[in-house]
Design a protein around this nucleic acid. Structure first.
Length: 309
RNA sequence: GGAGAGUUGGCUGAGCGGUCAAAAGCAGCAGACUGUAAAUCUGCCGGGCCACGCCCUACGAAGGUUCGAAUCCUCCACUCUCCA
């Protein structure tokens, strides 16, 4: 039984569809959203609630505390285990989420290269934070790894840092590491369902959802989280939480925060669509309404699954 | 009624005689994506072309001064602040 992937931009109704599908075919949901993995980040990440989780087993939600190091490789390892375990019980895996980098790490694996190294990272960042530090690092990268120097933009700080980190830890340029970690993980095949929605409609829906998040207490939730974790913790950079935290620190008023959250959400949805479009073998379903996943969408998905490929 | 300030591309907002189709940001569109990925980054963005160049239309409106104006002058129309 090959896994099913429910993909699409934020807010199209992936969770809802996954839930109904899971109930219909005896499946279990495996998350591939990079924020929903964190405990306590509920409202702002639109995490499926208790009601949904009582109906169908949900995996890889609430698995780590903010502040704990977590990345695509960790995700892929845990997700792979979860998928195997579900399949072993004879249940169907339904992957739902929007972090396509995580999905790819799971489905196709990551190169077997060195992971993060905190002390090396700190040193690189020390340089990066100097005036013109970025350019300096990029020139360094170009020298030790011309191919990556060309591929990575001089302003793309994250990627430059990572490339240098790999070089410093392993002595090998990042571009030399093979993409499929040869032999370590086999490729996972999946049936991919991509949900789309007309942009104006999606935007309207996203804005409504963000208004609802604030009404539901996003700022209060963030206050509680901020009391437990350092503000530098990764998920405080997530859309919604970053702005709510800014409000609590007196750096932004609520109205501005809401506008900013909406702006970032729209941009995020767009990036997700860009990624998804480049994904191959996606079965597209256009979601036609503002309501929660309609019966037509569900029916279309069921039809897809029944088709013998 | 008197004294000032302003009107710039979808928005905010620089420019203050030529190098201006006009900075920058936002929005929009397209894209990338090798362990921070809800992150990070790239390109396009007045219109039309037999497009690394050319043409047209553009900086509230109309005239004018200049080889040349979004930039100077005159006048008109709005907007705003301050004093009564």
């Amino acid at each position: 039984m090959i896994p099913i992937v429910i993909a699409g931009p934020t807010g199209v109704g992936k969770s809802e569809l996954a839930l109904r599908l899971a109930e219909a075919i005896g499946g279990e949901i495996v998350n591939f959203d990079s924020v929903q993995v964190y405990r306590g980040f509920d409202i702002g990440s639109a995490k499926p609630g208790a009601e949904a989780r009582a109906r169908v087993p949900h995996h890889l939600f609430d698995i780590i505390d903010a502040g704990v190091e977590f990345n695509a490789a960790d995700y892929a390892r845990l997700a792979r285990a979860a998928c195997q375990e579900i399949a072993a019980r004879g249940r169907r895996v339904i992957l739902a989420g929007g972090t396509f980098f995580y999905l790819r790490a799971l489905l196709h694996g990551l190169p077997e290269m060195p992971g993060r190294d905190a002390s090396i990272r700190a040193r690189i960042q020390g340089v990066a934070n100097r005036p013109r530090g970025n350019e300096w690092l990029h020139r360094w990268l170009s020298k030790i790894d011309p191919q990556s120097g060309r591929r990575i933009a001089p302003a793309d700080r994250h990627r430059i840092e990572r490339a240098l980190e790999v070089w410093l830890v392993s002595g090998r340029p990042i571009s030399e590491w093979e993409r499929p970690a040869a032999g370590t993980v086999e490729e996972m095949v999946a049936t991919k369902i991509g949900l789309t929605m007309e942009r104006p409609l999606l935007i309207k829906r996203l804005e409504k959802r963000i208004d609802a998040m604030y009404a539901a207490g996003l700022v209060d939730e963030t206050r509680g989280l901020l009391a437990r974790y350092r503000r530098e913790a990764r998920p405080f950079g997530a859309i919604g939480y970053a702005e709510a935290a800014a409000v609590l620190m007196g750096e932004m008023n609520v109205d501005t925060a809401m506008v900013e959250t909406k702006r970032r959400t729209r941009a995020y949805a767009k990036r997700q669509m860009t990624w998804l479009r480049s994904e191959r073998n996606v079965h597209w379903i256009d979601v036609p309404s503002l309501d929660e996943t309609t019966d037509e969408t569900f029916a279309a998905a069921m039809r897809l699954l029944e088709e013998p490929k």
